[in-house]
Amino acid sequence: MLDAQPQPLVQVQDLKMHFPIYSGIFRKHTGDVKAVDGVSFDILPGQTLGLVGESGCGKSTVGRAMLRLYEPTAGRVIIDGDDVAKLAPEPLRKKRPTMQMVFQDPQASLNPRMTLAEIVSEPLDEHTNWTRDQKLERVYELMDQVGLNRRFVNRFPHEFSGGQRQRIGIARALALKPRFIVCDEPIAALDVSIQAQVVNLLEDLQEKLGLTYLFISHDLSMVRHLAQRVAVMYLGRIAELSPSKDLYARPLHPYAEALLSAVNEPDPELAARRNRIILKGDVPSPANPPKGCNFCTRCPKVMDICRTVKPDLLEVEPGRLVACHLYTAAGSTGASEANERNQQGETR
């Protein structure tokens, strides 16, 4: 089993992204918004990791910090052998083609003054010294890949529908043949029929090109469909990281349970019977998170220890990692679990 496990393409270790707060007359550094506070996960090549959570929990920040669109405060992001979080500017630029991003709002992520050809060939301008014709050829190839008619090549973003715009965004991300793509809520701004098209396109591309995705979304059913493993985030930390089948069948972390109980159930009979967990109160401010478990202020199963000690993300069942005292405090207080943050079920 040890040898059979392929090396993960992406390894995130204890990633932290704190945004400083300055206040007062002298703009003193008075605190930090802990948007991402110690997140770790691996993604195997060709797989998809879903990252879900409510608005403002730091999902997008994880994606952006991983691609060094923000400067991470701490932690390591190893993508295909290099620690992206520490690369110098020029090696980082060389590294960019391996990792790309598809953005949430296709309208906002395309420059309104550039034509489709200019937008899609922009990465080529930056990283190749091809001739115009070569670039155009590649643009056509990409347009075919994402299902855009070649006739659209001279059109501007405002002349496309939302789904088509997202296809342009995907084509741009694919231009440099990346291995890893962060999909930052790529379907959130689209209506449902188009969502399916775009998700299918992403799946096809993954199959054809062997892409690895980090799929950030708050659409839980879409993530279930797309991802092999799912990480549930709450207030800058991962609450649970499990294979998606297990997670959807039987969530372990109370927050994951509450979140999943909010998924719409198409069957009215089942919908009537299921018991929806309704959380009380608001999410605490990420500038001032609770001392213990981040979820302790709203957790229905809160215990005393939750208010004082932050739970670590530990493997409680094969392949399932949960950050909750419910699963650790019970049996193994003394025996320090050796397999912390060891996510593939392997023992390295």
Binding site: R64, L67, L69, L92, R93, K94, R96, P97, M99, Q100, M101, F103, Q104, D105, A108, S109, L110, N111, P112, R113, M114, E122, P123, E126, H127, G169, R172, L176
Partner: peptide, 26 residues
């Protein structure tokens, strides 16, 4: 702060090119 500038940065565009292609025309 627009996403297309972010996209250009994720591509690895240098600041001078981002300014010329994305900022100045707008």
């Amino acid at each position: 702060e627009r996403e297309y500038v972010l996209a250009a940065r994720s591509i690895g565009s240098r600041p001078n090119r981002i300014i010329r292609r994305h900022i100045l025309p707008n």
